[in-house]
Write a protein that binds this DNA or RNA. Structure first.
Lengths: 205, 205
DNA sequence: GTCTATATTGGGATAGAC
DNA sequence: GTCTATCCCAATATAGAC
């Protein structure tokens, strides 16, 4: 294992810039409306150059989504194991919501789309997704065991709910409304997610 | 006001079949992936015939969304005023979730899209949307006043949260998972919306 | 008011020069 | 490894016959 060469570092940097642009366009416009020309222009390349590196538009999107899953795994790994599991879950969701507000969280593909089909055949994507889901599921089980998450809801429902909140349109609605700062928007959505809309009795006991 | 003629009734029926098909395709594939040819084929017409009735793909989608808002208004009107406001809100959301599971609830247009721009210029659409939002906002205020909804969250957040739940991908996730019936899926999402993921003390007092 | 046939364009993908 | 130029198809939209 020698140190990465300059060329390798340059390639990694270039790929990161490309995939960040793809991520942003996926978040802002969705897969169908995003064009490869836009991506190329945004990173200062031309379309054929992109196609040399990524064989297709689908491959480009898949690479961007895998990068996002890797960032998610890094955020997960950064959580202190001494923290209560509910706080770890909240921190990761908070990070995801912040990404969303920065237009860095692509919306999930629609029920039936060519992209979804190709992702389901992408073993790298599936493996990373499984890694995220596995850890979060463990944390959910821990939080249910220590009483900080409801045991009335199946953990499957909780996991999917956390995923769904990361692409919650409420974030855009509140941001567009202009009555709240980004930080307030994140806090409000976290509250709706964990506490719901019904009132809760005062904390303590 | 004479009774509607046969021809008028036929036209209304035809329009309803067309817009129901549009609605389903919007829900399943989204606006960009939906083609006018698909719509025409599904209702047994050809593309030019559709274009005679609706001048453009955008107009077709707008008509379908207005129809959905009208159905929503009908559902709202069907709620008994003697019911507590929280129950009225829950009933309307339940109806919307059922529509979603039947592929009759189009996903909201992405942040920036041609469809969104045209909808914001469509006065009929905006008027209907305002009618729905106005009534729901009143109910939210009533529910906050009678203590059945939290006063910690701005009512704006509650309204947007209800809208967002109608296109919540959790529904598809749970339906695809196969562990729950459609009715159970609806109930679970209603619980996550109103009660959140954290445990609640036993009811009563 | 529905059809067949066609115009037109946007955008994914590629050939081939440098 | 990046470019210019091009292919090609899918899909919106329309012309015009019946």
């Amino acid at each position: 294992m020698t140190a990465p060469s300059l060329k390798e570092q340059q390639q990694r940097l270039r790929d990161d810039v490309i995939l960040a642009a793809v991520n942003e366009l996926l978040a802002r416009k969705g897969y169908d409306a995003m064009t490869v020309d836009e991506v190329a222009t945004q990173v200062g390349l031309t379309k054929p150059s992109l196609y040399k590196h990524y064989g297709s538009k689908e491959a480009l999107a898949a690479a961007a989504l895998i990068r996002l899953l890797d960032q998610t795994l890094a955020t997960i790994a950064a959580q202190s194991p001494t923290q209560p599991p509910i706080d770890r879950l909240r921190s990761v969701l908070r990070w995801a919501l912040e990404q969303h507000l920065r237009s860095a969280m692509p919306l999930l593909p629609a029920t039936r789309s060519a992209l979804r089909e190709s992702l389901l055949k992408n073993s790298v994507y599936l493996e990373r997704l499984q890694a995220v889901s596995g850890t979060l599921s463990n944390w959910i089980a821990e939080a249910q065991a220590d009483g900080s998450l409801s045991t009335a809801l199946p953990s499957e429902v909780m996991l999917y709910t956390l995923y769904a909140r990361t692409c919650d349109p409420v974030l855009e609605f509140l941001q567009a409304g202009g009555n709240f700062s980004d930080a307030e928007v994140v806090d409000l959505v976290l509250i709706t997610c964990f506490d719901g809309l019904r009132p809760r009795p005062a904390v303590g006991r």
